[in-house]
Design a protein around this nucleic acid. Sequence first.
DNA 1: TTGACATATCGGAATATAACGATATAATAA
DNA 2: TTATTATATCGTTATATTCCGATATGTCAA
Lengths: 100, 100
Amino acid sequence: MEPIEIFKALSNESRLQILQWLKEPDRHFTPHEGIDMNTTGVCVSQITDKLKMTQSTASQYLTILLRAGLIKAERIGKYTYYKRDENAVEKIADILKKEI
Amino acid sequence: MEPIEIFKALSNESRLQILQWLKEPDRHFTPHEGIDMNTTGVCVSQITDKLKMTQSTASQYLTILLRAGLIKAERIGKYTYYKRDENAVEKIADILKKEI
DNA sequence: TTGACATATCGGAATATAACGATATAATAA
DNA sequence: TTATTATATCGTTATATTCCGATATGTCAA
């Protein structure tokens, strides 16, 4: 949760894009295996498709966002669902306002 | 004022440091040529000294912060004074809160 | 168990960033 | 004018990031 780590994660068009998509998942993705995207998240292949990059790149970017603490992951069967950590996004905005 | 540009500027320990110093200049610098640091800013050599990096590096980092719109510059005689653009810092926190 | 699929990780090539020393430019001082 | 000082820019080497293809791992279905 280091600010620098977070700003690095945000310093890339694709990763910002992913974060924004995950803000309103049902506006950007079609449901998957009867999963509630708002509660559980969106899986890597859905994001890969939309990103138009390789699965490898999508997975790595999600890992970077995860390590920065901006998203959360949940594995269900063979899928990993990622969703925003709204709390963390709020927190970094506050840090920016108060400490930087 | 591209968010990405701003996040890149914030993705470096030294540049974050500079921004924080400039938040309360009189806590971190000693007055210079009778300049009001809060109104006018702090000159490159003051920042260079505190950074403990070369003048070249300090100048480049200030330029990066300037281009990102996070600080403002004013040349007075042979000195260039830099100060925070508080408005811009607020704005990026808001963008983070609302758009990202 | 094998096969198929989803995701993660590894290794690499191209590009970007970090930080430096050297040098150019700008402004004042002598 | 020349010298001095402050800042900006250039060229460079080391390191980091971007994005890929190939491969490993994990999970389910047959």
